[in-house]
Nucleic acid binder design. Structure first.
Length: 283
DNA sequence: CGTCCACGTCTAC
DNA sequence: TAGACCTGGACGG
């Protein structure tokens, strides 16, 4: 379940289910996972989460000494998620496990069938990843508009949108939905699209209130990189998560382009499928 | 049974 | 810029 919204929703999920709970003992890793052991052990600790783009960090805090807090930073690959279950109901593919002290004994698991996900003990946010499109909007916007000379922006806009140095949190369904909202041809050069955003940004003949009104009614590409992911979070489910039929139905209804009947698909230069509106390539 | 496809990085030639 | 890394679901024969 893993583009920015799913990572953010996972963090919120952890904070909700772990609120007021205590965990204990060692952190267990499955034998098959190639990710590192998590050498943290405490008789009584709490878990909280924070997310940034396509990463989420769990903070493990011993109740005895909050200065001994440790953390684990996760990336979800194509299939990562957190689940909270009874100990005797451990999910398949639960590769990292945190056990509660409180009864009934439960377990918070990092579940990842395909094992493309990764974690790092006491790691920091990946330094090459840019500001979060959801939680650091102004920084995100500035990071893009100040670096338009980067060769990343020589590429088609649909490919640039997957670059996590600039669009931390955007993934394959979000790029399709965002471009669709503005009817932007996916293979337009990114710099061309973004220079127009920058120019629009500086257009200052109008009053402030008029500018705000225009911004609200005609959000530009970078605003949509923020607001479209937030729409997914506001659906209240888990976003892209086929496992929950009700939430997945709501997500499916929300999609306007990706996976939608009648939309066209192509492979981008990295072999990833881009969904877009029929006719938009020619317009 | 087989082939294709999937929400993403990684590293090796 | 290809593969590599994986499981599993959908669909075809």
């Amino acid at each position: 379940m893993p583009e920015g919204p799913e990572l953010r929703l996972s963090g919120l999920f952890v904070n909700r289910v772990c609120d007021g709970l205590h965990f204990t003992g060692k952190v267990e890793k499955s034998a098959i996972s190639k990710n590192p052991e998590v050498p943290f052990c405490s008789p009584k600790y709490t878990i909280s989460a924070v997310s940034r783009g396509k990463e989420v960090k769990l903070i493990l805090t011993p109740t005895s000494d909050k200065n001994d807090a440790a953390s684990v930073v996760f990336r979800f690959g194509m299939s990562g998620s957190f689940k909270f279950t009874a100990v005797d109901n451990l999910p398949k593919h639960a590769h990292l496990r945190f056990y509660t002290k409180d009864s009934p004994k439960r377990v918070l698991s990092f579940v990842d069938p395909r094992r493309f996900g990764s974690w790092e003990f006491n790691g920091s946010w990946q330094p090459e990843r840019g500001p979060c499109v959801m939680t650091e909007y102004e920084k995100f916007r500035e990071n893009v508009l100040k670096n338009l000379s980067d060769k990343v922006f020589d590429k088609p806009i649909c490919e640039a949108l997957l670059n996590q140095k600039y669009f931390n949190g955007i993934g394959n369904y979000l790029r399709a939905e965002i471009l669709y909202r503005l009817h932007i041809p996916p293979f337009m050069p990114a710099r061309e699209v973004l220079e127009a955003v920058k120019h629009q940004n500086q257009n200052s003949d109008l009053s402030l209130s008029k500018k705000i009104k225009i911004k609200k009614e005609n959000p530009d590409l970078l605003q949509l990189c923020h607001s479209v992911p937030l729409e997914v979070i506001d659906l209240g489910g888990k976003g892209y998560d086929p496992e929950n039929a009700v939430d997945y139905a709501a997500f499916g209804t929300w999609l306007q382009c990706y996976f939608v009947t009648g939309m066209k698909t192509m492979k981008d230069s990295n072999g990833r499928t881009i969904w877009f509106q029929v006719g938009v390539l020619m317009s």
